[in-house]
Design a protein around this nucleic acid. Structure first.
Length: 211
DNA sequence: CTCCCGATAT
DNA sequence: ATATCAGGAG
């Protein structure tokens, strides 16, 4: 069955109703903390990132303080998040660049953010949409999977899905819809064992399957 | 495309 | 035992 534009709008409306009260899963108290948390979240659960950042930010939560730690201590602090050597190296280099070129403040455009080591399109989208309230749809593993299953946007790479979602969703809902899709992916439309029977979209979903 | 990588769910 | 987790760089 074909997923029409009208059905896509219905899906978004339902998700918006079901997940209207969700907050970002990552814990942070400043733009810099969010940036670091998102970098750490690559191939790691948000729960693990929050445990790690609680301890890390108590020690250092500014680029200057992270630089003062040194790369070895940073590696030890973030080890549990995985990919820890490359993440530590990238974070140190990003902090240096933020201090040298942005007066210690997190840059505010996708283009500038993506120049930071360890910051790709997905991370940049998250930061601008959450911190600077700029409409954006960050396509992470959840958004990618859920969008393809629902056929809200179909594609074999994140950028294609991002562009498809921007067409299917009105701009004023981009940032909120990004969170709805993530939480739907986390709680219901899971990768390995999706809870199709209890899905609020089961009547509309082209991938609906009984267990 | 491969590599980075520990923790967790299944 | 293995697939997956708020990806990005080379």
């Amino acid at each position: 069955m074909r997923v029409t534009k009208k059905i896509k709008a219905e899906m978004i409306d339902i998700l918006g109703e079901v997940y209207k009260d969700v907050k970002p899963a990552l814990h942070y108290t400043s733009p810099f903390e969010l940036l670091i948390a998102v970098i750490l979240s690559a191939q790691c659960t948000d729960v693990r990132v929050n445990i790690t950042t609680a301890r890390l930010f108590a020690r250092a939560n500014t680029p200057q303080a992270i630089l003062a730690m040194g790369v070895h201590d940073l590696e030890e602090e973030i080890r549990d998040c995985g990919l820890f050597r490359s993440k530590a190296k990238n974070i140190m280099a990003a902090c240096q660049k933020i201090c040298d070129e942005y007066h210690g403040e997190v840059p505010q455009t996708i283009e500038e953010l993506m120049k930071l080591p360890g910051v790709g399109r997905k991370t940049a989208n998250v930061v601008v949409s959450i911190i600077f309230d700029i409409p954006a749809i960050a396509v992470d593993t959840h958004v990618f999977r859920v969008s393809n299953r629902l056929k809200l946007a179909v594609g074999d790479n994140p950028l294609t899905v991002e562009q498809g979602l921007m067409k299917a969703i009105p701009k004023e809902k981009w940032s909120a819809a990004h969170h709805w899709l993530i939480w739907h992916g986390r709680l219901v439309c899971k990768s390995r064992k999706p809870l199709c029977e209890e899905c609020p979209l089961k009547e509309l979903c082209p991938s609906f399957k009984l267990a």
